[in-house]
C-alpha cells in the first residue's frame, strides 16, 4: 500500500489495486463480513468461492459500495471509497460490475445498453460511443443483435451484453457476482469463454462463482469464504489439490463429487 502515493492514481502492474482492510459488516445480528483483509493486485484474477450464505456476494458488492460496510476501509487505486453522491458515482464508473441476473436496462436496445454509460457518465459523443459499443458487442459475439431488446435475447447472450456494458466504461477492475448462476448449462460456457478472454488480456477481476473449471483455468488466486470469513486463499493448484482447512476440504468434497 505504501508504494502508492496519491500522485500516482494508476497502480503499476502487480501493485495492489483494490485493498480491503479489516472490513466488518453486520445485518442486524448476522455478522456477514468478519475482519476481511484482501489485497487484489493490478491484472490479478481472484476467484471467490464458498458455500451460499458465506458472504462472498456481499464482499463483491462492497467493492463498489452497492453494500455499505460497518467498519474497516476499502481503497481503489489508493483512494478510499467515497461515502455517496457524485464522488461515489465517479468511483463506480471505474469499477465494472456483472450481476447474477444480468440487469440489462429493459427499455433500451442492446446497443443503447452499452452506450448509456459512455454517453451519460463519460460524456462521449454518440458517434464515438456507438462505434465503441459496436466493437465491444462484436468482441462478445453479439454485434448483429444490437437493435434488439434484452428480452429478445437468451440468458447467456444477455450476460455477454452485460459484460460489454461494463467494459464500455473502461473500468480498472471488473466484479462478477455469480455471473453464470442464473444460466442454463449450455449457456454457461459462452459467458465463461468471454471471461477467460478478458482474464488473458490482463483485466483485474474479482469473480464470485461456483464454476470450479473457470477457477482452475483463469484464476491467479482462489479465496475461500465461509461464515463471513476468509478461511483460506492460495493458487488454484494449491487450493484444489491441497486445501489446508477442514472447511474447504469438506466444501470441495461436496461439489467435486459430481
Amino acid at each position: 500500500m505504501t508504494a502508492i502515493s496519491s500522485q500516482a492514481p494508476t497502480a503499476a502492474q502487480g501493485e495492489p489495486l483494490v485493498v480491503l482492510d479489516h472490513v466488518e459488516k453486520w445485518y442486524g445480528d448476522l455478522h456477514v463480513l468478519q475482519d476481511i483483509n484482501l489485497s487484489i493486485k493490478r491484472g490479478e484474477v481472484v476467484v471467490v468461492i464458498g458455500p451460499s450464505g458465506s458472504g462472498k456476494s456481499t464482499l463483491c458488492r462492497t467493492i463498489n459500495r452497492l453494500e455499505t460496510i460497518g467498519s474497516g476501509t476499502i481503497t481503489l487505486d489508493g483512494q478510499a471509497l467515497p461515502q455517496e453522491g457524485k464522488a461515489l458515482a465517479g468511483l463506480r464508473a471505474e469499477v465494472g460490475m456483472v450481476f447474477q441476473s444480468f440487469n440489462l436496462f429493459a427499455h433500451k436496445t442492446i446497443l443503447e445498453n452499452v452506450m448509456l454509460g459512455p454517453v451519460k457518465v463519460r460524456k462521449s459523443s454518440k458517434a464515438d460511443a456507438e462505434k465503441r459499443a459496436t466493437e465491444l458487442l462484436d468482441r462478445v459475439g453479439l454485434a448483429k443483435h444490437a437493435p434488439k431488446y434484452p428480452s429478445q435475447l437468451s440468458g447467456g447472450q444477455q450476460q455477454r451484453v452485460a459484460i460489454a456494458r461494463a467494459l464500455a466504461m473502461e473500468p480498472k477492475v471488473m466484479l462478477f457476482d455469480e455471473p453464470t448462476s442464473a444460466l442454463d448449462p449450455e449457456m454457461i460456457k459462452e459467458v465463461l469463454d468471454v471471461m477467460v478472454d478478458l482474464a488473458k488480456q490482463g483485466m483485474t477481476m474479482v469473480v464470485v462463482t461456483h464454476e470450479m473449471g473457470f477457477a482452475r483455468t483463469a484464476a491467479d488466486r482462489v479465496v475461500f469464504m465461509a461464515d463471513g470469513q476468509i478461511v483460506e486463499e492460495g493458487t488454484p493448484e494449491e487450493f484444489f489439490t491441497h486445501a489446508k482447512s477442514e472447511r474447504a476440504r469438506d466444501f470441495l468434497g461436496h461439489i467435486l463429487k459430481h
Binding site: 463498489n64 452497492l66 463506480r92 450481476f99 448509456l116 457518465v121 456494458r165 461494463a166
Partner: peptide, 9 residues
C-alpha cells in the same frame, strides 16, 4: 443497481 454500477448519479 446496474445504473449505479455504471456510474450514474
Amino acid at each position: 443497481e446496474a445504473a449505479r454500477a455504471i456510474g450514474l448519479t
